[in-house]
């Protein structure tokens, strides 16, 4: 039983890591909602800082997991798979941080023409990230709902892509100067990468699931 108990700590760390990633996405959504309803003020900066803190904490946990895993009893192939997925998951928070930091540094906001779609894309990104966490546990556990998660995340990615295209079209139809259009388009493109990363992680999880079939 000792060999099985060794991994409890690892399970706990992975749980914490996934929770931190999700928290950073949630904080990002709060920040965007606040910005849409208010202005770029001190409170927005505080929420943006929270995103950074969660992302940084997730990084620390990821490093701990890496160190921990090489000393424990998981098989090398599983270790590689888990570390690979965690490494890609780590990239989910990066566009969130980038977007918020751009808002602060460039002192700009999302134009009214795309606000609803932008918020919807943020919600879809958060949902995809939540689904990825669930799919990750399923992949490490009984591996029974992988197909279901794969379909949902794929749908979210398609929806995200169509929203992204719609918003870019709206940006270039709006009465804005070219620089502002490019800035707005960059926000949309950065936000769109979250769903793409989630889909990429899901692809990896599906492969891990297949490998786990004896």
């Amino acid at each position: 039983m000792i060999i099985f108990s060794k991994n409890k700590e690892l399970v706990c760390m992975i749980g914490k890591y996934l929770a931190e990633v999700q928290e950073s996405l949630n904080a990002f959504r709060d920040a965007i909602r606040y910005l849409m309803e208010n202005h770029l003020d001190e409170h927005f900066r505080i929420i943006a800082k929270k995103v950074h803190q969660h992302e940084s904490h997730a990084d620390d946990i990821r490093r701990e997991i890496e160190k921990f895993m090489f000393g424990k009893s998981l098989l090398p192939e599983t270790r590689e798979d888990i570390l690979n997925v965690i490494e890609i998951l780590d990239k989910i928070s990066n566009p969130c941080e980038d977007i918020l930091s751009d808002f602060i540094l460039q002192k700009t906001v999302i134009i009214p023409e795309i606000r609803t779609d932008f918020l919807e894309l943020v919600d879809i990104s958060c949902e995809s990230s939540k689904l990825i966490a669930e799919a990750f546990w399923d992949c490490l556990g009984k591996c029974r709902k992988m197909d279901e998660y794969n379909v949902k995340i794929d749908d979210n990615e398609s929806l995200g892509d169509s929203l992204e295209g719609k918003m870019i079209g709206a940006i270039f139809d709006a009465e804005l100067d070219k620089v502002e259009k490019i800035i707005q388009r960059d926000f949309v493109k950065k936000l769109g990468t979250i769903c793409n990363i989630c889909e990429h992680v899901m692809d990896k999880l599906v492969i891990c699931g297949i490998k786990r079939q004896v």
């Binding site: 690892l10 098989l75 786990r212």
Partner: peptide, 22 residues
């Protein structure tokens, strides 16, 4: 024989991996 039991049981990697090593 063992595949039948593993398919029924479906242990998590945290049980399967140490079990296989053992």
């Amino acid at each position: 024989f063992f595949k039948y039991f593993l398919d029924k049981w479906k242990p998590s990697v945290f049980i399967y991996d140490p079990l296989m090593s053992l």
